[in-house]
């Protein structure tokens, strides 16, 4: 596949445009989505701790609150980067025709694509980090651990943003975006060990959950409780999926713009 021409300035300029739009509309675009993982953290944390108390993770007992904190960070990363990649880019591609306008400037398809990708990644990072900050204030995740978790969050945000872009390129109508949300994102959120250990799932379902990318991200974010034995394979898996997703997203979107 031909690698699109990309310039650092071009990518930054596209990202900057999206960031300025976000700045203008932050009350609407920032507050509601950011509350989602935080509400889950509070609701699951306060609601289920009296019932669950502790869970066994990596052979060791941990409090339920400590267990779900990284899960909710991963959830923030997943939801925000995927939704921005899917809905945000779909709207810019098909309704606002922002991509078309940008391509009349001295920008290439590569600049616009990577700028959109990194913007969706940024939104995943913002929500993941703020959920982490809430967990820190609550005393269930340490500031140092959040700092060390940033590269994992970045990897997850890059991947889920790119998966969102695939959907933005593949969907003909905005309603089509619901299909991967209910067929992939929600099942991944519920099955991948964000709020219960995957060990409790039956064999086949656990095997499926284990290979879903959110499972790798959650396991990596739980590093304060011990990394999984094959932690490097988790990283490699996320990197490989990101590269495949990027290639697919380019393939889906490019023909809609460049003939």
């Amino acid at each position: 596949m031909k690698i699109p021409s990309i310039s650092l300035w071009g990518v930054y300029s596209v990202w900057h445009r999206h960031a300025r739009v976000y700045q203008r509309t932050w009350l609407v675009n920032f507050l509601p989505p950011i509350t989602e993982p935080i509400v889950y953290l509070i609701a699951f944390g306060l609601g289920l701790t009296p019932l669950v108390g502790e869970v066994v993770y990596n052979g060791q007992p941990v409090t339920y609150l400590e267990f779900i904190a990284p899960g909710m960070i991963a959830l923030g990363v997943l939801f925000q980067s995927f939704f921005e990649g899917a809905f945000g880019s779909f709207i810019r591609l098909n309704f606002q025709r922002t991509w078309h306008a940008l391509l009349t400037a001295p920008l290439t398809f590569g600049d616009v694509f990577v700028g959109d990708w990194l913007w969706a990644t940024t939104k995943g990072m913002i929500t993941g980090t703020l959920t982490g900050v809430v967990a820190i204030v609550w005393g269930i995740y340490s500031p140092l651990h959040l700092l060390m978790a940033l590269p994992f969050m970045l990897l997850g945000s890059l991947l889920f943003a790119c998966m969102g872009l695939i959907v933005a390129g593949a969907a003909d109508k905005v309603d089509h975006i619901n299909i991967p949300i209910f067929g992939f994102v929600i099942p991944m959120f519920t099955l991948c060990g964000t709020y219960f250990p995957r060990e409790t799932l039956p064999g086949t379902l656990k095997a499926i959950a284990d290979i879903l990318p959110l499972a790798s991200l959650v396991d990596l974010l739980r590093f304060p409780m011990g990394l999984p034995q094959w932690w490097w394979a988790n990283i490699l898996w996320l990197v490989v999926l990101t590269l495949i997703s990027a290639a697919l997203a380019v393939r889906m979107i490019r023909p809609k713009l460049i003939h």
């Binding site: 300029s13 300025r20 203008r24 922002t98 400037a105």
Partner: peptide
């Protein structure tokens, strides 16, 4: 394909950034 989130002048200012 103007940016509906920006005012008229901001449409120009933010497009100028690409140059």
């Amino acid at each position: 394909n103007l940016d509906p989130d920006f005012t008229v002048i901001d449409n120009l200012i933010f497009f100028a950034h690409h140059y």
